[in-house]
Design a protein around this nucleic acid. Structure first.
Lengths: 131, 131
DNA sequence: ATCCTATTGATAACGAGTCTCATTATGGTT
DNA sequence: AACCATAATGAGACTCGTTATCAATAGGAT
């Protein structure tokens, strides 16, 4: 039976307070800096629970998992600034359909898909020298 | 100056011989099993070189990088069987356009994107009990 | 208030990948 | 063909994200 602990709630809150995607370690540091005594393992556990329950989205970057609080129940993808991490949720029925179609055409069933777009947001592209 | 060694060639060959995506460790084991004395670090180096030069595609799965020999010079995505690893290269101009458009609409520049479709291939879906 | 047990947290363990550095061998030069 | 500067190799140490262990703690149903 699932229990409600202040630790899980703290992770949920801290995640919501973050702008873009954050790593478990970063979130743990933030919580500790805020005076919490939460353990690192607990942060990992809470984050993977949230991801499983659909309250957070996860993606892999440079070998680590990063998480973000997301509007639950809606299937969407992300447009992510690769400099500052600013993230915008995007929906794209066309892409969903395309994925289904392409899978079916090759005899694949129960398709999943990973779709993410990275770029430099307006602010960062203005602030940075052209790369 | 870049040198040609039998080790790099061995990695290239072993990669081409693999059906789907393989991890560096798996490729290293395969080479060792085949009698090669190649070192693990060298396999890692060769694979990341191949990926940089566009001779191989890489993607992240469960926290590890997996690689596959790919038709060089062509931008494409993958349809991957999540059971047997069978991989089909797919092209999708519509998705490329969509990614560019969606980025531009939000003021993002120099967009990248990650697009992969996973599913069960015909063989595996026939062989496995329905999940 | 009591009990059962899910959850916590400190730390050990694990695993993918990188770094170090002495040794090897490639490929241009003579 | 012999030489040499140096790129590449490989064994193992190391880093670092993540998971497992396990005794202690604290939900929550009764």
């Amino acid at each position: 039976m699932k229990r409600n602990t202040w630790q899980r709630e703290a992770v949920r809150t801290a995640l919501s307070a973050s702008e873009g995607f954050v790593s478990a370690q970063a979130l743990h540091s933030a919580l500790r800096d805020g005076g919490s005594s939460i353990g690192l393992a607990t942060v990992y556990r809470a984050l993977s629970d949230l991801a499983t329950e659909g309250e957070a989205d996860a993606l892999q970057q440079e070998g680590e998992s990063i998480y973000r609080a997301c509007t639950p129940g809606s299937h969407h993808h992300h447009l992510i600034c690769r400099n500052c991490g600013l993230t915008i949720e995007i929906e794209a029925d066309a892409v969903e359909q395309w994925a289904k179609t392409v899978a079916a055409e090759h005899g694949f069933i129960s398709p999943n898909h990973v779709v993410d777009v990275f770029g430099l947001c307006a602010q960062c592209s203005a602030r940075l020298p052209s790369s």
